[in-house]
Design a protein around this nucleic acid. Sequence first.
DNA 1: CTTAGGG
DNA 2: CCCTAAG
Length: 608
Amino acid sequence: MRRLDYGFTGYQVPVVPRASRSSRGRGQIRKKCEDNQIRGFGILSSVAGNLSQGSESLVPTNAACVQDLHHIVYANSNRERDEGRSLKQDSCQRGTCDEKFFAFLPGLQGHHKSYKLNEFCHGQNNLILEVGSASGAYDQSEMIFFAEKLATVNSRNNCVSSSNSVIGDSPCFGEFFEDKVGGVLEGKLGDKSYTSISEKDGIIPITGSSEDLIELDREPHALVGSESDVKLSLLDCINHVPCPKHYDNVKVITRDDDENSVRCSQHSTISKSYTPTAGIRERTKKLSASRNWREAQKLKGGQMKPMYCNGTNRHMDERSQNIYPFKKRKFFCQNPPCTSDGGDNRSIAIGASSSIAGQVPPESKGCNVKLSIKSFKVPELFIEIPATATVGSLKRTVMEAVTAILGDGLHVGILLQGKKVKDDNKTLLQTGISQDRKRHSLGFILEPRHAQITPPACTEDQSWLPGCTPQDLSRHSAPLTLQPETQAMVAVPSIGMEALAVVPFCRKSNPEFVRRRIRRPFSASEVEALVQAVEKLGTGRWRDVKLCAFDSEKHRTYVDLKDKWKTLVHTARISPQQRRGEPVPQELLDRVLAAHAYWSAASDKATG
DNA sequence: CTTAGGG
DNA sequence: CCCTAAG
């Protein structure tokens, strides 16, 4: 003991006995669901498989079916066609690129094959979705889905996301493209490298990642090389419309709430885990909407239940008070109620729609069903953002909202003339998808996978959209629907759509994501308070420390305090030259060491 | 929920 | 800061 005059009455064995843990009870253990990330794809895979099965009953295809992609694509509505072309050719020049879906569904005759999702990725530029067959016997009927999704992206990141592999997360992925499919690709995209590689190696690596979707402003980096050239080739195929210009319209920059901390970009660090969403946790950026939402939580007081729905726990609630950048969540099946700001923020409701074009060429009667999916429809996308927010922040907010939806938990729904096609076992013929006269009414929709999702709690508080009931909200997306036929999709009632209607990071719609709290360095006064409290209470009563010294600082949890103490001890032990960040007064560090030594000794004495 | 520690 | 096993 170096000294005893620490400015308090001396170290003592804790006076206040702690309640036994058993008396405090235990909550349920959170359960993680590792494979959640791919759940969204599972349905799609099954859909693809069913579509393919359906094709088995179809008449052999006409080779012409696959010859002219451009004949297939955009052959639906005028609006879609024109827009599609203009997008393909012009969008990059205006600073956007087409985000594309590809789904190849080779159908077979007389061969029962299992189709597996080959790729599903959404990088900043590409949302690629391919379903291939492991079989080399393709007699007939390729079903080609070509979807394009317009997204504003930064072209510099073309292919950069290639290294992030969805396959790596699940054995369910990583199937083979074989010659037939490759031929299809070649025929459409004219990319030799892709074809040859697909034939030779048979494996199409996953490309893209969620994190890249968010962090758009970084330069391409070495990641690209790690997954071989195949991805690049594939991307080259997909992005055969070059985007040569520099786009920064979706640049995402982070600024911490805390005045003490400003982060502008993070170009260097790459998440060690390349699941598509893991990087989000590490590197995605907090947006103003989320901040406002969080603050609204705080301000609402008793009106809203705490995030974790436990009114008895004040400390866990604190965590929810903070602002979270997106991060990967290991699928806690919690559905914290989302809320919206009742304050003076003006809200902007954005109905994000998409349209799907489908066509059955007459010459392929009963054979191939070729669909061009201009874009998946996202049922609802409502953004809440202060009226004072900048356009840039709006873009970022929308981007993040979209990312939140795309990141996980999606399910592809089929809409035929506005009605959901629920029976996955029906063939396309039986369903009517293959019938020419109905081609205009086929739609695909992305929905949350968790159909059991209950309507968001914040539904009760949608005053931020004056005069709008949730039903009204649904209508808002209709005017933005590109194609008249697809408006029917908007009207399709869906619980999932309800859930998506509150994208302001209502994690219901995307339980994969939580937001990492922003970093808030401890101030000197906080350190002082912490040291003082620990001197008094010891190093094993962090809840008491919290109550004693940080009760009013809702963003400091007892875990935070414990962590801070840990770092303080570490800081005190290393040389001043090694210390980083805001320097802590040596006097405090000395007290830290002294208190730490004292309470460690006390602990040892009690234990041994 | 809290603690305690590793990441 | 996050995550989580233990208590």
